[in-house]
């Protein structure tokens, strides 16, 4: 059935847990692109057929006309599905900049296609240039502050961290009581977690 393959792409998106990215399905994607071009060939040949029969393309309502309409509509449907697939993924990729930061971990990187990787980089750069114009980092402070200091547990060796007038050494499994704003970048990278008793 026409358009079925394209709808599979969207079903994949819908089946995925909210906020999660699936690997880019290039097989199906390429097949749908091919389908589009086939539809177009059929469409063009039907139009030619009508023209060859010296019929007015605007008013003719024979079987060739309706065949052409079906190919046209299938093409539109495929296009909408492809665009929706790409666009929804792009929206998710945008949100990663806010949630994770300018560098994506390997396992997410692998799920993107080439254009998406480039998109993420360009989009990050746009956010960064906005922030530098304002001279304000918007990627910290994602949750309303309760206490300026929080207790954190270090999950991975980070090394020395300079905090104003003194430095602390962030070794794995150590606990620290530091400013929330200092801790947030590490938390979002998964190197620390808030320690709750």
């Amino acid at each position: 059935m026409y358009g079925r393959r394209a709808s599979q792409l969207l079903r994949e998106l819908a089946a995925c847990e909210a906020g999660q990215l699936t690997a880019f399905n290039s097989d199906t994607f390429e097949q749908v692109i091919r389908e589009c071009n086939e539809h177009n060939l059929q469409l063009q040949s039907l139009i030619r057929k009508i023209e060859d029969a010296n019929l007015d393309i605007q008013t003719t309502r024979n079987e060739d006309h309706f065949g052409a309409v079906i190919h046209h509509l299938s093409l539109l449907r495929n296009k909408r599905c492809l665009m929706a697939y790409m666009y929804n993924r792009a929206e998710l990729i945008q949100s990663l900049r806010w949630k994770i930061g300018p560098v994506l971990p390997q396992e997410i990187q692998e799920k993107l296609n080439y254009s998406e990787e480039e998109y993420f980089k360009n989009h990050s750069a746009a956010i960064e240039s906005y922030m530098s114009e304002l001279d304000l980092d918007l990627t910290v402070d994602m949750v309303p502050p309760k206490d300026p200091y929080i207790r954190v547990k270090v999950l991975d060796d980070i090394g020395e961290l300079c905090l104003g007038d003194h430095a602390i050494s962030l070794t794995q499994h150590s606990l620290h009581f530091i400013k929330r704003t200092d801790a947030e970048p590490f938390i979002s990278q998964g190197l620390m977690e808030e320690f709750l008793e």
Partner: peptide, 9 residues
């Protein structure tokens, strides 16, 4: 966004 959608689709 335009560049991304253009080159991929």
């Amino acid at each position: 966004m335009e560049k991304h959608l253009d080159q991929s689709v």
